[in-house]
Design a protein around this nucleic acid. Sequence first.
DNA 1: GTTATATTCTACTTTATAAATAGACCTAAT
DNA 2: ATTAGGTCTATTTATAAAGTAGAATATAAC
Lengths: 143, 143
Amino acid sequence: MLSKKAKYGLQAIIFLAKETRKKKEPMQISELAAHENLPKKFLEIILLDMRKQGILHSQMGRGGGYSLAREANKITVGQIVRALDGTIAPISCVSKSAYRKCNDCKDEKTCEIRKVMQKVRDATAKILDGTSLEDAVKGKVKF
Amino acid sequence: MLSKKAKYGLQAIIFLAKETRKKKEPMQISELAAHENLPKKFLEIILLDMRKQGILHSQMGRGGGYSLAREANKITVGQIVRALDGTIAPISCVSKSAYRKCNDCKDEKTCEIRKVMQKVRDATAKILDGTSLEDAVKGKVKF
DNA sequence: GTTATATTCTACTTTATAAATAGACCTAAT
DNA sequence: ATTAGGTCTATTTATAAAGTAGAATATAAC
């Protein structure tokens, strides 16, 4: 399951992507939180995470706020989920961004669970990495 | 991410499926836990869950233990994950087995996140429901 | 330069849920 | 009756999620 962190982050950045098309000014955390009904302080952490990973850009001081660091068609849903949840893989031993061997795994190559979950990861990656914010906003989800 | 519960459950039932091909006697929790290096008491809860959902059969008393309730080709990985995690969906609003509307969702039909996650769910379901324990044990994971 | 506004950063508390553990209790075979 | 097993209740521990409070920092506007 997607964590709430990733879900809230997606909600916020999708709203940002929508609004960015209209006006170019950054948006305040408060406005984002209010519009999407998200816990403000939690959202603060989430936005900060995305900024540190280069997905969002922030502007301090008066008139400041958050804006997309790149164009909406250059940011994928997969990047956001990885930034906030660490991975899109159902199990860490098939993750590319956050690989970790299972605790008592005897042999990764013959692990049956790993084989199945590898397929799930690949299918998920294809969808999430193949969907940009622009696609999402325009409702153009392929596959 | 798959919970540890589901992962341990899969480990245990796959081991069971392998051993069942040889001998027909039920297997004890202790043996399962020892062989797969799983916390015994936690595994106890997991096996009980699967029994209550008709996936496993248990025999009380001396010489008892757990065995598959159906043949290995009649049990899918998807059934096990759903039994232990409630759903295979990345977000509850696209789950079939455990549907739940998102808290402050204004309109499910236009939700961009939902559209993407629906695709992920469908792709995941195809793989997990299309893979039986027999497939897993024989290393025959399609797709 | 001062002020207002907004992000950034730190720290702590609470609540909910996942993960793990302990022990008493029930069941069936011998 | 005894023994070997599952069943059930309760509790603890760890982590995710959320909320609270406040200080530090950066920037625009005056």
